[in-house]
Amino acid sequence: MWHLLPPLLDGMKTTLLVTLYSIAVALVLAFAAGFGRLSKSRTVRGVTLVYVEVFRGTSLLVQLFWMYFALPLLLDVRIPAMSAAVLALGLNYGAYGSEVVRSCVLAVPKGQTEAAIALNLTPRQRMRRIILPQAWRMMLPAFGNLQIELLKGTSLVYLITLSDVTFRGMVLRSSNMTETPAIFGWILILFFIVAFALTRLIRFFERRAAVGRG
């Protein structure tokens, strides 16, 4: 049973890499689109709304397939599986994350904005010093959940030929069918460990964000 672990751990590296890159892309997009939805300009609001609804309304796997099979034909370029995976996962969870950003910014009590205006802070200072730190604290638990969903979503990249942990499992399985339960049992345990670690990480950030605030 232990001989299965090294190749699976090797595949886990790809899984973790895809996870980290996608989290970074998703986080940037979540803030960009979240603020886009709150923009004064109708065009910006409209464009971000379409982005959010399209990526939330279609399925992640369909988006992965689209980025990998359709987009290269449309643009007439080769897109490596890794880029397609990060693009699809980032865009998808960025769309979900933008709703978190939007609702948390809106959830900061209005009195805070008013007080900041009364103190003559510029709009930029108001956002950076007053609104965002409070909103950030509210965003963290939801981001934590999305992070776990994203991690689970990375298992799908195997279907666009990336050699992640699932792919390695399938290769191992093809050489010895009787080991199928052990292989996928291991993969489940590996995912659980990573999810657990990510949850701890978010808790750490939550505690840090709570320092000095009621």
């Binding site: 776990i148 991690l151 689970k152 979503g153 990375t154 298992s155 799908l156 195997y158 699932t166 499992g169 996928f184 993969i187 489940l188 995912f191 659980f192 999810a195 657990f196 949850t199």
Partner: peptide, 9 residues
């Protein structure tokens, strides 16, 4: 906290 895909497999 584990993927649906693996559970299906």
């Amino acid at each position: 906290s584990t993927p649906l895909l693996i559970q299906l497999i």
